[in-house]
Simulated assay, not measured.
Amino acid sequence: MTAGRPFFVLLGPDGAGKSSVMGRLAELLPEWRLVSTDSAFVTPEHILITRLRRDLQDYLLPGLGTAYSADFLASVLQTAVVHMRDQVRGRNPRVPVLVDSYYYKILAKCRIAGVRDTAMYDWWRTFPQPDRVIYLDVSPSSAWRRRSDGANLNPLEHEGGKGDMAGFERYQKELRELLLEEVGDLPVTELPEQPSVERTAELVREVLTS
């Protein structure tokens, strides 16, 4: 737990709608600080995070397994992990904070990719822990549609080389299990899939402010 005002994490599998919900929460909770590696939430002095994320999408992931190893991928992703840790650790104790996924999702995806660097994982686990995790659930079929029926997948969202729905479902099932395993010792509120971003954001807001 952290001192001062609450620190929460918004978590969920690929296609759960976290980015959309975070965007809506920025309007609903202007007094909160929202931390994410999405460009909409990265301040100008941290533009390197946005550039690294773009280069990862454009260059690293297309070459994963050929030009770049899974260990190299983990090394690049660790920049995002440390950035989010720094944002939590250096926060104003009077301002409540919501963090998108924190290190939990990156750790789970590194494990699925075959990265066995337990010393790195152990270090991440020493980072400040949230007061609560809000887990957004989503059915594989809905997540698949949100990924344009697979057209917008990257190699860290599915099993196998084809990127078909079966490989996507298998990957997301394993990801869900690892995410919930990682936060198993923390207070977790699971929210079932909702019919709209607005409704999901309202439910998250209720948890954050209760």
Rank of each mutant, 00 (worst) to 15 (best):
R145A: 12
L98Q: 05
W32Y: 06
A108L: 05
A166L: 14
S148E: 15
M165H: 14
E198K: 05
L56E: 12
E190S: 13
E198G: 06
L180R: 08
V115Q: 03
I106D: 02
D55V: 12
R24Q: 12
P6Q: 07
Y59Q: 15
P195F: 00
N154W: 01
R176N: 13
V197M: 01
L28M: 10
R94E: 15
K18C: 01
W123M: 13
V76W: 06
P6A: 02
Y121A: 13
R116G: 11
Y171T: 11
Y68R: 09
L64I: 08
S101P: 07
A119M: 13
G15N: 03
H158V: 13
L156K: 07
D38W: 03
L203T: 03
Y103C: 09
V183N: 03
Y135N: 11
L10Q: 03
L175S: 02
M84T: 08
L34S: 01
A67F: 04
G90K: 08
Q194R: 12
W123E: 14
E193Q: 07
A108I: 05
A70E: 10
D137Y: 13
L156H: 06
R125H: 12
E31P: 00
M22V: 00
V76G: 02
L208P: 00
L153E: 10
V115C: 06
L25A: 02
G17H: 05
P6N: 10
T118S: 10
R132F: 05
D55S: 13
L10P: 01
R116T: 15
A16Q: 03
Q57T: 14
S148R: 15
M22G: 00
R111D: 13
P195M: 02
D117P: 03
Q194Y: 01
Y68W: 13
A40I: 06
E182M: 07
S39E: 12
G23W: 12
V204H: 00
L153S: 09
F8P: 10
I49H: 02
V9P: 00
E190I: 14
E27Q: 13
S69V: 05
S75L: 11
R145E: 15
D185G: 03
H46I: 05
L153Q: 11
D14M: 09
R5M: 11
V188Q: 03
Q87L: 09
L48F: 09
E169G: 02
R5P: 04
E174R: 15
S139I: 10
K105W: 05
E31F: 00
D14H: 04
V99S: 08
R147C: 09
L153H: 07
E182K: 07
P195E: 01
D86G: 07
P13W: 06
F72H: 10
M84P: 02
T43I: 08
K173Y: 05
R91N: 05
P128I: 08
S196A: 07
R146H: 04
G163D: 13
L64A: 07
R33N: 07
E45Y: 01
W144M: 14
Y135W: 12
K173G: 11
G12Y: 00
R85D: 13
L156I: 11
V88A: 03
L180D: 01
P155Y: 04
D122Q: 10
Q172S: 05
Y171C: 10
S148D: 15
N154V: 11
V42A: 00
G114H: 13
Q172P: 04
S69M: 03
Q172A: 07
A40R: 15
D122K: 12
N154D: 15
S39N: 04
P30A: 02
V99Q: 08
I47P: 00
F41N: 00
E190R: 15
T118P: 04
